[in-house]
Each structure stands twice: as structure tokens, then as C-alpha cells.
Nucleic acid binder design. Structure first.
Lengths: 132, 132
DNA sequence: CCCATACATTGACAGTCTTCGATATATAGA
DNA sequence: TCTATATATCGAAGACTGTCAATGTATGGG
């Protein structure tokens, strides 16, 4: 119905129906993971938290980063709500730290997506992927 | 000059000067990498390109994805300008494919950042990291 | 109590991003 | 040359995001 004589016989145009290997739901979840890391300030916050594991208060971050305190609190809330970091409040201070198990899970997800991208670009046969 | 008697002796507040392990420039570059992958449609496009390595035209993507053709062209342009994909125009069709070496470089960058985050969260002594 | 400090929250603004209709460009068959 | 198709581009609308001043909340010293 789509090829009535005017098309120059496209090699495989319109062959994909509506189902893709990575369906919309999984793509949305993955994109959320990537989006959390798609901001330079958040990347720096996580780096500082990792560098000094466990004894970083907000004022430390404020001193080290090029943004004001409300902005840092905003980013920390995003990191907190996504589960990437935890808080430990002591007196006036709030000590944030990376949640190691969450980080592992997150890295595993991103890695396996990026890995799946490169399987077929290395000129490997399809059978190697279908086994996953 | 900052501790004049009213501060309850904060453990290490304000210790970080202005230099962080991950400086702003590197963080900006990394965040650009993550941002490219921070959209579900782009993730699906890359997945489809990887699944069928090399013979995917825009109309294939249009048939498989939940967005209209101008949107797909827009995302393809972003992927193209960042170097993640290449085009091969033949007649009416444009065949996009993943650039394997760019993908490798990109994955290596993201991986080494995520790796650096987890070193200190595994309860390792500081000396192990200072050696890097 | 009063005050200083650390951090959170609010509200507003500016910039960016995604999306799509409309339109343009290019290619190829008749 | 005329028409149909594939893709690109333009322009605008709407949503989302990062930023910060102002303000609120809680804690602790004097």
C-alpha cells in the first residue's frame, strides 16, 4: 500500500513496526539516570563527595564550587531524591555522602546500555546479542 | 578570621579552597557527554542504530519511534554534531550509523568518571587514591 | 532570651530543550 | 517537466532547568 510504483524500491524502509529492542519505558528510566549526571555542578559535587568519603558538609561544597548555597542545596536535593546520596545531620551541619550500592547499580545500568550499543558496531554476528 | 567565637568548631568547614579534583572545564565536558544521552528518544535511536548496524534510514526510525520526523531529524543532528553518528546519503535516503571509535571514547570517559566516584566509597584508605 | 550560623525552601527569572506544523530542498521516476 | 517521496530546516509553543535573592527553620553559644 505504500509502494505503488513511485518509490525507487528502498532497501528496508518502514520495516520496523512499533517495537524496538529498547522500549520507551526502559529508555525513560535510562535517560533519567543520564540526566542526573548531565550537570557540571552535580558532577563536581559527586566528585568531592567521593574524594572525601563522608565528611563533607554543605558549606564545604559552597566553598569549593562556583555557585551559591541555594543552588547547592537544590542539586543535593536532586541527588538525594534519586537515591544517589544520603544525608547525615549532626547539629547545624548536614553531611552528605554517596550511596555506594546505588552508585554501583547506576553504573551497571549505564554500562550495560553503552555496552549493548557497541556490540553490533564491532561487526559481530547477531546471534551474540540475541543470547542476552 | 572566620572563626571568631560564635562557631561551634565545625569539623572541617570551608576547608576546600577553589580547586577541586574535577575542575569546572572537565566537568562541563563530561556533562556534555551525559547530556547527549539524557533523552529517551536519542537512547532509542542509538539502540536501533546499534541493533541494525548500518542500514537504517530516517523513515525506519520514524516508523519505530513515538515522535514525528522533524523531531527525529533534530535528534540526529545533535548526535551528528557531537560526533556520535555518521551519515551516508544515497539517493533519497540518509543512512545513519554509530561511529564506533567515538562511542568507545565516550564510554571510556563516562566509565572512568563513574569509576573514580566509587574508589573512595568502598571504604578504602586515602593512600590508595593519592597514588593516582 | 538573643544572636549567629548552617541549611532548606520559596518565588522569580533566564536560558535551554523537546516537539511539531509548515515549508524548503533534493532526488528520482514517468 | 511534473509529481511523489525522503529528509532538512524554520519558527513557535510549551515544558523543563539552573540560578539566586529573600526568607524560613533549626541548632547551639552566650
Amino acid at each position: 500500500m505504500a509502494n505503488l510504483g513511485h518509490r525507487p524500491a528502498p532497501p528496508r524502509c518502514g520495516l520496523l513496526p512499533g517495537d524496538v529492542r529498547l522500549h520507551a519505558e526502559a529508555a525513560a528510566g535510562l535517560s533519567r539516570d543520564f540526566r542526573l549526571l548531565a550537570d557540571p555542578v552535580r558532577l563536581q559535587i559527586l566528585d568531592i563527595l567521593a574524594e572525601r568519603g563522608g565528611e563533607v558538609c554543605v558549606c564545604d561544597l559552597e566553598a569549593a564550587l562556583p555557585v551559591k548555597q541555594p543552588t547547592i542545596s537544590h542539586h543535593l536535593r536532586l541527588l538525594l531524591r534519586s537515591g544517589a546520596v544520603t544525608v547525615d545531620r549532626k547539629g547545624l551541619w548536614a553531611y552528605y555522602r554517596i550511596d555506594p550500592s546505588d552508585l554501583r547499580a547506576r553504573r551497571s545500568r549505564l554500562q550495560s546500555y553503552l555496552q549493548s550499543l557497541s556490540i553490533n558496531t564491532q561487526a559481530q554476528p547477531m546471534e551474540a546479542i540475541n543470547g542476552l
